[in-house]
């Protein structure tokens, strides 16, 4: 496979995804340079999670392709960390927090190899990073929403990836957890990692992220937050709902 756009952490071209002949994503291009914290923002049903899943090869797109650091996704899988929505699993599963975190290493362990002391140590240090080391032996059924989310984040951290994809990591999470999560994400970016977050809260985009994409089935706009975060773009993305956003302090908001 040839190298294509090697200077971009994520390069998505002409991505189209359809469920039952209805397009959920239409002709989406996405470019994320390395070392930024990027937010994918858009209304409900805009296809944000679908975009992540299509990038990660979890959904087969109708058309389009995905390159990470210049190579197709399949060759770069080991450089990717993923944090799915925490509500996507049943937390009443018989296992412990540390065990869930170790699952992040199952991909590279290979068949027949069991996680051992090295893997346990990495899991514990990831739990420390997210402020959950006291919970390592806790049953996952006993965790609060924020703790579940931090457990998932720790599971992605052990993947030691170059680009992280997170699906709504701040949804339904307490303030402590949100701070802990943001702290970890900033740290990752400061270490040169790329962080791509599906995000629902426009308020925090400007304070937290340095790159953003506005998505509503089509890619409405993308780039540095200060360039993209305009009343016009938000209106184009959210349509009539833009009235709700006036509190968000839009530069050049009408009225």
């Amino acid at each position: 496979m040839s190298v294509h756009e090697p200077d971009l952490a994520v390069h998505v071209e002409d991505l189209t995804v359809a469920y039952h002949a209805k397009p959920v994503l239409w002709d989406v291009d996405l470019d994320v340079p390395p070392g930024v914290m990027a937010a994918i923002v858009g209304p409900n049903g805009a296809g944000k999670s679908t975009l992540l899943k299509a990038i990660l090869g979890l959904i087969r797109p109708t058309a389009g392709h995905v390159y990470l650091f210049g190579r197709p996704y399949a060759e770069q899988r080991h450089r990717v960390g993923y944090v799915p929505q925490r509500t996507s699993v049943d937390w009443d599963f018989p296992t412990t927090v540390a065990d869930v975190v170790e699952m992040g290493l199952y991909g590279r362990l290979g068949w027949l190899r069991r996680p051992g002391r090295t893997e346990r140590a990495r899991a514990l240090s990831a739990l420390e990073q997210v402020g959950m080391s006291d919970y390592r032996d806790r049953q996952i059924a006993q965790l609060s929403g924020g703790q579940q989310q931090r457990t998932f984040l720790a599971r992605a951290l052990v993947q030691d990836a170059d680009v992280y994809f997170l699906d709504e990591p701040m949804a339904g999470v307490d303030a402590t957890s949100e701070r802990a999560i943001l702290e970890v994400l900033r740290e990752l970016r400061d270490r040169g990692k790329t962080v791509v977050v599906v995000h629902h809260d426009l308020q925090t985009v400007r304070t937290t992220f340095d790159w953003m994409m506005l998505l509503n089935v089509r890619a409405v706009a993308q780039g540095p937050v200060e360039e993209v975060y305009t009343a016009q773009n938000l209106h184009a993305t959210y349509g009539g709902q833009v009235a709700l956003l006036e509190g968000a302090g839009l530069p050049g908001a009408p009225g």
Partner: peptide, 15 residues
């Protein structure tokens, strides 16, 4: 175990 607990994540690992 991984595929039972979180099949989507397991798939993202390449399992």
């Amino acid at each position: 175990k991984a595929a039972t607990f979180d099949p989507v994540f397991a798939a993202s690992l390449g399992l």
